[in-house]
Design a protein around this nucleic acid. Structure first.
Length: 514
RNA sequence: GGCGUCGUGGCCGAAUGGCUAGGCACCGGAUUGCAAAUCCGUUUAUCCCAGUUCGAUUCUGGGCGGCGCCUCCA
């Protein structure tokens, strides 16, 4: 299969290749764990998931690693001086408030002053959110999701290495900086070459710090600082690592190679984060490349606007899933995780995705259609499933679209019409659908994941009391209709609708779904 | 100002130098006690200007607009 991706490094779509044939080493920049992840984060994560699942289905063995950043970097942790507030300190303050107001479950955090407990709390929340959206690497926690704080020794080793190779130096105040002038390729990824960078502009970088650096763009590798909450001993004094070094170290260590195949992240990370990663990794390894393919997801907008807390269009995954999100003063109904996954997946990664209420409705319709198609296939096939066949024409076309720079919309344009047609060979089509669902993973959500109950859209927990009560109402409704007591039937139906169910009256009786 | 990226119908979104996906929504019909669902059918488009061409939405150039980065951010 001819696979092509847009590579930020070359700014063009180019044929995909791997360092080791058949194996993909892939690293994704993950979340910081000072708060709950929002849907913008997950747009980028699920794009990486789609990429990974596509490559796996196309026959590659994919090693996917995603970091968890828990070091407590600074709010203005720019290349210069690590100024601003400690983000972990901010998280601690928020946590104390939330604990006081009862928004944190009893026993979840015994000591809100302990940064490791804060990190643990939000890491678990992240992993749960990820798993609920069938984000595969979240199921490989903790093996494939390293924490920065567990790799401090590795970071120190790389920093020492960089100093030794002449790529880093200790400034007069003891801070270790990467010397961008020692790395001529600096700017290759972002286009922000040293000539183009605004040098220490805006007065946010203190002159004092600038004076100590050899070049204004030199960035922090280690900062001796006894006041930082999370701090470690080092050859350069007790302090904390720079923001960029963790990814260089963890990618190399967990993917067991100085050169990896794919590195993903949000577009905002291109500069300075990824630019600096390249400088560090290549500086330390001596290789020309760190990652051969840099693939970045564009930002997600909410109803056409950038998501921000002040605009009230800022949603976390859990808010949307449990129905506690509000928008423009109105509560949003709880979204089924398969629908949210589909919604965050359905737009091309290199275009702005506009997250809207209407989009969610559309996605619900599509997921429902796929779910019903699958159920039709399952019952028509009568328990038979053919062997997975990549040569199935629909699978071929589906994967072909994704091979073209992950053209998900075209791929969906293949699957959805197919799902409307009657099947001439249900067993083969079911096998094909399963292959496609390896990638989309929405019908059902979670299929193929270990320790996961595959979750169909519109499916109910049989044990649920509300569900049982609703079923009883359905029987009453059927009885009322049989007796031609339509007033009563309508009343019961409106009760069910009010309780949040979709009510359908079929020949076999009344049926409800979400 | 520098570096990128995107711009298709009411919405989401493909494809293509000429025959113009798909989904959702809407509308009409069938069906139904009424709804819903389902089935059948239909309507609406290529940001602007110039160039190349027999013909451009597709190629080229120039605008305009959205978004991102250049400062923490997926």
């Amino acid at each position: 299969m001819d696979i092509r991706f847009y590579n930020t490094l070359s700014k063009q779509v180019e044929p995909f290749f791997t360092v080791t044939p058949g194996v993909v080493r892939m690293y994704s920049c993950g979340p910081t764990v000072y708060d709950f992840a929002h849907i913008g984060n997950f747009r980028s994560f699920l794009f990486a998931d789609l990429l990974r699942r596509f490559l796996e289905t196309a026959g590659f063995s994919v090693q996917h690693v995603m970091n968890i950043t828990d070091v407590g970097h600074m709010t203005e942790d720019n290349a210069a001086d690590g100024g601003g507030q400690d983000r972990m300190q901010e998280a601690i303050s928020r946590m104390k408030e939330n604990k006081k107001s009862g928004r944190v479950p009893e026993g979840a955090i015994s000591d809100p002053n302990d940064p490791y407990q804060i990190a643990e709390y939000f890491t678990r929340a992240f992993v749960n959110d990820g798993r609920s959206l069938a984000y595969k690497v979240a199921y490989e926690y903790p093996q494939k999701t390293p924490r920065a704080t567990e790799h401090i020794a590795g970071m120190q080793a790389m920093i020492a290495d960089l100093i030794q190779r002449g790529h880093a130096y200790v400034a007069a105040d003891g801070v270790v900086y990467f010397s961008v002038e020692s790395f001529p390729e600096y700017g290759r990824l972002s286009g922000n070459t040293l000539e183009h960078l605004h040098e220490g502009k805006g007065g946010r970088v203190s002159d004092q710090n600038q004076a100590l650096k050899r070049h204004p763009a030199d960035f922090l590798l280690w900062k001796p600082d006894n006041h930082h909450i999370m701090k470690w001993d080092s050859p350069w004094g007790v302090g904390y690592p720079g923001w960029h070094i963790e990814c260089s170290v963890m990618a190399r260590q967990l993917l067991e190679s100085p050169v990896i195949d794919i590195h993903t992240g949000g577009e905002d990370l291109i500069f300075p984060h990824h630019e600096c990663e390249i400088a560090q990794s290549c500086g330390a390894s001596g290789h020309y490349s760190f990652a051969n393919f840099w693939i970045h997801a564009r930002f997600l907008l909410v109803e056409g606007e950038k998501m921000s807390k002040s605009k009230g269009n800022f949603f976390t995954v859990r808010q949307l899933l449990d129905g506690t999100a509000t928008f423009q003063g109105e509560a949003l109904p709880a979204v089924h995780p398969a629908v949210l996954r589909y919604e965050l997946l359905k737009a091309h990664y290199r275009s702005n995705m506009n997250f809207t209420r209407k989009g969610l409705q559309d996605s619900a319709g599509a997921v429902k259609r796929l779910t019903e198609f699958r159920r039709r296939l399952e019952s028509a096939a009568g328990g038979q499933v053919a062997a997975p066949d990549l040569q199935h024409p629909i699978v071929q076309r589906f994967l072909g679209c994704l091979a073209d720079d992950l053209n998900i919309a075209a791929a969906l344009g293949v699957v959805l019409p197919w799902a409307n047609e009657p099947s001439s060979d249900p067993a083969a089509d079911l096998a094909a659908f399963k292959l496609i669902n390896q990638v989309l993973n929405v019908a059902p959500l979670g299929e193929g994941l270990p320790d996961c109950q595959p979750q169909y859209y519109g499916e109910f927990d049989e044990e649920d009391e509300a569900y049982q009560a609703a079923l009883n109402l359905c029987r009453e409704l059927d009885a009322a209709r049989q007796q031609k007591d339509f007033a009563r039937a309508d009343l019961i139906r409106s009760q069910l609708i009010e309780a949040g169910f979709d009510v359908k009256t079929t020949r076999e009786g009344t049926v409800i779904s979400v």
